[in-house]
């Protein structure tokens, strides 16, 4: 399997599943089913400038970052958006961070889709 990815490091997923391809594919499938919907919610919260919804969505997405071996720097960015003081309003600073996160989550999905396809090919 090709481990050259930008956003994810598969070592945690391999440790968790003991490199069992069917378990790895199962977890990736769950991630790929859930995340696009969450990305849509991020987009909606940005369009509506709804800080509470953005916070709740990011909060829900943080634990899976670690499971998928996402660089801790991206997790820190997510925590920053989650802990942002929205009473100051929906500033351009938080908007930029949320847009960056949207891009990161999309990138993670693209990479995991590739990993899934490779696993599928290898274990047909």
């Amino acid at each position: 399997m090709n481990d050259a990815t930008t956003y994810i490091d598969l070592s945690n997923l391999k440790r968790l599943t003991k490199s069992d391809p069917s378990l790895m594919m199962e977890l990736i499938t769950v991630y790929l089913e859930q995340t696009p919907t969450m990305i849509q919610v991020i987009r909606q919260s940005l369009a509506d400038k709804n800080g509470e919804l953005l916070k709740a969505t990011i909060h829900k997405m943080i634990p899976s970052l670690n499971i998928m071996g996402v660089d801790p720097g991206y997790e820190r960015l997510a925590r920053k958006v989650q802990e942002y003081d929205y009473s100051k309003g929906f500033t351009s600073e938080v908007e930029d961070m949320a847009l960056k996160l949207e891009q990161i989550f999309t990138g993670i999905c693209v990479e995991l889709q590739q990993v899934f396809e490779e696993l599928q090919k290898e274990h047909k």
Binding site: L16, K18, L23, E26, L27, V30, Q34, P63, S64, M68
Partner: peptide
């Protein structure tokens, strides 16, 4: 947990 990924990962860990 309403996070299916975390839920699944915990289930795997406990079963193992």
């Amino acid at each position: 947990d309403d996070d299916p990924i975390f839920l699944k990962s915990l289930e795997i860990e406990f079963l193992q």
